[in-house]
């Protein structure tokens, strides 16, 4: 798995006005989720990490949704596709990128 995201915090922050663009990372591997959060934060994104599908669904129902969700496909319990369905039901306009290590 290779992570490639545009670098440069200035350009990332400038693309959504004053607010830093926000990305939610959902992966049951907390090490990987934490790494991606750090990786994205270094590039100027407001990044939050979740290790369960139901956590991101609850967070999105309650608060402001992120600009993009990076969502792992294979997760125990509520898997990536079930989470995707729940997210789209709650916020049809939400942009989601699925992640798979296979």
């Amino acid at each position: 798995m290779t992570t490639v995201v545009p670098s440069g915090s200035g350009s990332a922050a400038a693309s959504v006005g004053e607010r830093r663009p926000s990305i939610a990372v959902v992966d049951d591997d907390s090490g990987f989720a934490g790494y991606l959060r750090t990786f994205l934060a270094l590039r100027g994104y407001e990044a939050r990490a979740y290790t369960r599908g139901d956590e991101i669904v609850a967070a999105i129902r309650q608060g402001e949704p992120p600009d993009i969700v990076l969502l792992d496909v294979a997760m125990p319990g509520m898997d990536g596709l079930q989470t995707l369905k729940a997210l789209k039901t709650a916020r049809p306009e939400l942009q989601v990128i699925m992640l798979s290590g296979r």
Binding site: T3, G31, F32, F39, G101
Partner: peptide
């Protein structure tokens, strides 16, 4: 083998990524 590849890839990606940082 497929399962082992999947399980190994993630920690190696994390370790490599932090080392690069």
């Amino acid at each position: 083998l497929s399962l082992a590849v999947h399980e190994l890839r993630t920690p190696v990606t994390v370790a490599t990524g932090y080392l690069r940082m």
